[in-house]
Design a protein around this nucleic acid. Structure first.
Ligand SMILES: [Zn+2]
Ligand SMILES: [Zn+2]
Ligand SMILES: [Zn+2]
Ligand SMILES: [Zn+2]
Lengths: 132, 132
DNA sequence: TCAATTGCGTTATGCTATAACGTGTGCGAT
DNA sequence: ATCGCACACGTTATAGCATAACGCAATTGA
């Protein structure tokens, strides 16, 4: 899927996420955009829904936050799982893909006749800089 | 770690989860326990915190719900990741462990000098019975 | 021009989780 | 024995995350 032109609100939200150095919650995004006319959570959530649909933003389920995709060009997401390492100290997120993990998980799911649709792989811990 | 004797509230919450056929949210558990004297969310959350600590209950981050451990005897959780396949139609959860996935992920994290502490692997989709 | 679609703004509401306070009980150390 | 401590518990209030429902405006395409 090729990403359509973003609307004004989508662009604002996407820019905030792109400039952020850590994942942001929807309400944090809202606060950062009040000067640009944002008044209500729905304005953020509606933009996020589209950005998620286009695959340019990821949702981190374990911390209720959102992050810009680190690999927007490789359209890796269409044929593989995405995994995240999240530093609980500095917030930094490393996004990565591993086909071997994919295949292993998919094989297992197939053996259970389970039809996978969405996946969440998130590891929380401490990054190299923050580890004691 | 061996599981201590459960307190009254912990037992009530654990029993509800054990009898449930699908993951339950904390507030759903609260409703099911009102007849037993539960009045406030904290009573549920405090019991859940302990049950999670003892490893007899798992939290499903992607659906904000809790489920009893499917393998309470094999103390597999101490040395390996846990993964879940969650049916979005009937709610059934399949809990599984795969050392190859573990090792692959851990190797990658190690190569990044990332110190893993907690992991979330959840696949949503449709189980064999519910797939069209 | 008309209908359908999509984005947008607003208000209200619902769901999820924790803070902060106080009570009571069991149990080991003095 | 009683003091101190840890822990479970109960309650009220609050914080944080997400969506329902309404109406309007701009766009598109027949
Ligand atoms: Zn990505
Ligand atoms: Zn860090
Ligand atoms: Zn388990
Ligand atoms: Zn099912």
């Amino acid at each position: 899927m090729t990403t359509p032109i973003l609307t004004k609100n989508q662009t604002l939200v996407f820019d905030v996420l792109t400039k952020a150095e850590a994942p942001l919650s929807a309400y944090t995004i809202l606060d950062k955009l009040r000067d640009h006319g944002f008044r209500a959570p729905l304005q953020v959530y509606r933009a996020l829904d589209k950005l998620l649909e286009y695959g340019v933003v990821h949702r981190l389920e374990s911390i209720n936050s959102f992050v810009a995709c680190a690999h927007p060009d490789e359209n890796c997401h269409s044929h593989g799982l995405v995994a995240f390492a999240i530093c609980e100290s500095c917030g930094q997120v490393i996004e990565f893909h591993d086909h071997e993990v994919d295949h292993r998980l998919m094989d297992w799911l197939k053996s259970q006749k389970f039809k996978a649709e969405k996946s969440t792989i998130e590891i929380r811990g401490h990054c190299a800089s923050c580890a004691a």
